Computed example of a mutant assay.
Amino acid sequence: MSDHVLVIGEALVDVVVGPDGTEAHPGGSPANVALGLARLGRDVDLLTRLGLDPNGVLVADHLQDDGVRLVPGSAGAGPTSVATATLDAGGAATYEFDIVWELADGVRLRNAPLAVHTGSIAAVMAPGAAQVLTLVRALRFNSTVTYDPNVRPSLMGSPDEARPAVERMVGLADVVKASDEDLAWLHPGREVDDVAREWAGMGPALVVVTRGGEGATAFTHDGREIHAEAPAVAVADTVGAGDSFMSGLIDGLWGAGLLGRANREALRAVSDEAVAAILRPCTRIAAITVSRPGANPPTRAELDAG
């Protein structure tokens, strides 16, 4: 067992084409989670797929400069995935995606991590989703599994098409984080809290639902519900807010000694007070992120200064 977290999932470039020009920014939900953990001072590996092209170099430099370790084999043939948003004069965006999700053969992982995190496109899009599922099943014996569906409707088909893959991963996870919008899309017409309670009965110790400015609620496997309010903040944009919350959640579980196989029962028996103490910094981390443009999560020093 090694004191690090393994994140598995997509890293890509977000290209924004607007009236004033074109800008490219590193992105991808799992990559953002890895970045957030590294900025909080945690040892984190990212298993992803990058091309050996300028976009791949942009993403790799961005992540490695903040301390994310790219798993050997994450970069290889083919282009880096790109999501392009074209803005009209009024700021409305239309999107185009050029995304390939597949892990290379023969990647070399370190010793068993304390936790393995995945989510979003990586757990749903073929052919890589099957590889992610196989890895998570193999790693979960020793490692806490965390999962964030972070749905992308334009890439995941209909709710009926996406739901089986999402809920298969929910059943493998120890901790799930999902936004209220995720749950509303996956289960149209149902109450978000009812879906969260159902998911908490599928196997996770905790299902945490984020509600934007209304905070977050944790639903436990044994029927408890713990809420944390979100700090009031002037919002620049919401890009990366959920990912930074997820980083804070993993960080909080780590700090509370609740990650890893040896602590699985302690996680399932966690008290309301301990859950609330973990959630409060998560809402602050997300608030700092939305207070500035882009997926720009805080460092440990910024969090401590608040």
Rank of each mutant, 00 (worst) to 15 (best):
M1K: 12
S2Y: 13
V5D: 09
V7N: 02
G9T: 03
V16R: 06
P26N: 02
S29E: 06
L35T: 00
R42V: 02
L47A: 05
D53E: 03
A60M: 11
V68M: 03
P72N: 10
A75H: 10
S81Q: 08
Y95A: 00
E96H: 14
D98Y: 08
D105S: 14
P113H: 04
A115D: 11
V116C: 00
V116P: 02
S120H: 09
V132F: 01
V136I: 00
T144G: 00
T144L: 01
D148L: 05
R163F: 06
P164A: 01
V170L: 04
G171R: 11
A173W: 09
D174Q: 06
V176M: 01
A178W: 14
D182W: 11
G201S: 07
G203V: 04
V209D: 11
T210K: 14
R211A: 14
G212A: 09
G215M: 12
G215Q: 15
A216P: 12
F219V: 07
G223T: 03
E225C: 01
E225P: 00
A232N: 14
V239D: 08
M246Q: 15
I250C: 04
L253W: 07
G257M: 09
L259G: 01
A262M: 12
S271D: 15
A274C: 11
T283Y: 08
R284S: 13
R284T: 10
I285W: 14
G294T: 09
T299C: 13
A305F: 05
A305Q: 12
G306F: 15
G306W: 14
